[in-house]
């Protein structure tokens, strides 16, 4: 187990960190220590303060997108999991409905994203519908190729990752606790806030880790749904790779990793997952 971990995770990670300190030219990496990959990424950022330079703004935007997506996946995921765990009584139905949640994964990632275009586009279903109903007179432009469409697609994709661990936590809650709360005169909200949420914490944290790590590194969904116009940390790495600037890509990967790691450490502070499991 340790060996697999070392071989397939620690070692490649060390390489990435090492390469991020290498020099490069048009077509090759030069194994010579330099911090060029880092400082060129943030070139001009200090002089531009307090205004954010493109690179800093990109990281801020990535974190912002990530938080929005996290919030919505959490709200929707929690509600769906709650419904499945406490309102659906039969085991068969629980299984059937959980399987329904996987429908978005039945087609490929790319097709799923392209399918949004006829729906949200300028001449898409939503716009023509709204105009036919007389609610709007001009097509709404921000439905597609905007932060809105990115968040929509990401929430659609990743809510499932939130549902499963939260549902799992909820199923472990001893039902007698809920009855006791009810007998003690707690309202539904009080039960939710004082019993269910605290006992679901591990599920929430695990779901959050899934969503946050995926969204922080995503570049395909953000690229397609943002019309390649919205930058994110993952996209920076992709474009650097495409330009054969591997050390610069590695440097950005290290930065992204550090930020993600920071967020996850903070989450771990809130809940000690190992203890809870």
């Amino acid at each position: 187990m340790m060996l697999v971990f070392a071989l397939f995770f620690i070692l490649p990670l060390c390489f990435v960190v090492m390469v991020s300190f290498w020099d490069y030219n048009e077509y090759q990496m030069i194994p010579r220590f330099t911090t060029r990959g880092y400082y060129e990424s943030f070139e001009g950022c200090l002089t531009k303060l307090p205004e954010l330079c493109t690179m800093l703004a990109t990281y801020v935007k990535t974190v912002k997108l990530c938080l929005i997506v996290w919030l919505f996946t959490f709200l929707i995921g929690f509600t769906v999991a709650y419904f499945l765990a406490f309102h659906v009584r039969s085991k068969t139905w629980q299984i059937a409905l959980s399987l329904l949640c996987t429908i978005p994964f039945w087609t490929s990632n790319v097709i799923r994203m392209i399918a949004w275009i006829p729906l949200l586009g300028r001449n898409g279903l939503v716009n023509t519908g709204l105009m036919d109903l007389g609610i709007t007179h001009e097509p709404i432009e921000w439905l597609l190729y905007s932060e809105f469409s990115i968040c929509l697609a990401l929430v659609h994709l990743f809510t499932f990752f939130m549902i499963v661990p939260i549902f799992n936590s909820m199923m472990r809650i001893d039902r007698r606790l809920l009855e006791a709360a009810y007998d003690a005169g707690a309202t539904g909200w009080q039960t939710l806030w004082n019993i269910i949420i605290p006992l679901c914490k591990p599920g929430i944290v695990i779901g959050s880790i899934f969503v946050i790590t995926i969204v922080m590194g995503d570049f395909i969904t953000i690229g397609v749904m943002g019309g390649q116009q919205v930058a994110a940390a993952g996209k920076i790495i992709e474009t650097r790779l495409n330009a054969l600037q591997f050390p610069a890509a590695a440097a950005n990967a290290v930065i992204l990793l550090a930020i993600t790691f920071l967020i996850i450490t903070m989450l771990n502070r809130l809940v000690d997952i190992r203890k809870e499991l």
Partner: peptide, 24 residues
């Protein structure tokens, strides 16, 4: 770009076809 001139950027042949044929 900041003034909103561009609808999207494209990188792949099919993207350019989609943008144009959908009227985006």
């Amino acid at each position: 770009k900041k003034a909103g001139q561009f609808r999207a950027f494209w990188k792949d042949f099919n993207e350019s076809v989609n943008l144009m044929s959908s009227g985006e």
